[in-house]
Design a protein around this nucleic acid. Sequence first.
DNA 1: ACCAATTGCAACTTCAGGGTTGCACATCGG
DNA 2: CCGATGTGCAACCCTGAAGTTGCAATTGGT
Lengths: 105, 105
Amino acid sequence: MTMKALVPVFAALGDETRWSILAALGEGDASASALAGRLPVSRQAIAKHLAVLQEVGLVEPVRVGREVRYRVIGAELTATARRLDAIGAEWDRRLTAIKEIAEGL
Amino acid sequence: MTMKALVPVFAALGDETRWSILAALGEGDASASALAGRLPVSRQAIAKHLAVLQEVGLVEPVRVGREVRYRVIGAELTATARRLDAIGAEWDRRLTAIKEIAEGL
DNA sequence: ACCAATTGCAACTTCAGGGTTGCACATCGG
DNA sequence: CCGATGTGCAACCCTGAAGTTGCAATTGGT
């Protein structure tokens, strides 16, 4: 299991542009430059977003020749979903699993 | 179904302080003033956070006399988790498809 | 009626995040 | 070898989010 901080993952997912990037990557792996061609932002902006996404494990870089393509890691999304679901479930049972997360794990 | 924008929900969940608030609310409904007593931020700051959380449907206000208590809506967390899981699963499906093609299955 | 607690509103400060541009460095192809 | 393509790094704006303080308005309890 990745078991990272979780909150940064949500922060990463809380940006429209990053979802655009994830969506574009859904059509196949792509480099920052390639993505800059499809999206209305500069390559450098995309590079920063990719760095953020990589930081939280949502995306993975793959060197292909002189370019760096990125691949989405769907498993990380599902893992995050599982944890979120667990928290929601615990809440309904009046338990406080969230406390641990809020207190920095 | 709530079916709100989803991205704002993640944005709301991408803040440590708001998780602290959610955690505190996990111990029982509470007002902004009461929360300000437990957390290291001002009441007004908490009020803003509660407004954000309410905006995305994660929390619900309940008037009790002259105070306004807030209650966590666990169902919204679960719903968000479901949607996130669906997205992640979709990605895995694509990757699996690609993998099979690449491996000549 | 009065006092204290609570909320609401507004102005203000601070700073990190998202965006840009510019340039230097690598690397592939002809 | 040289030009084109792609990446990395750095400096720089600029808006918005998170936090603060102060004060007016509401409402409960005694």
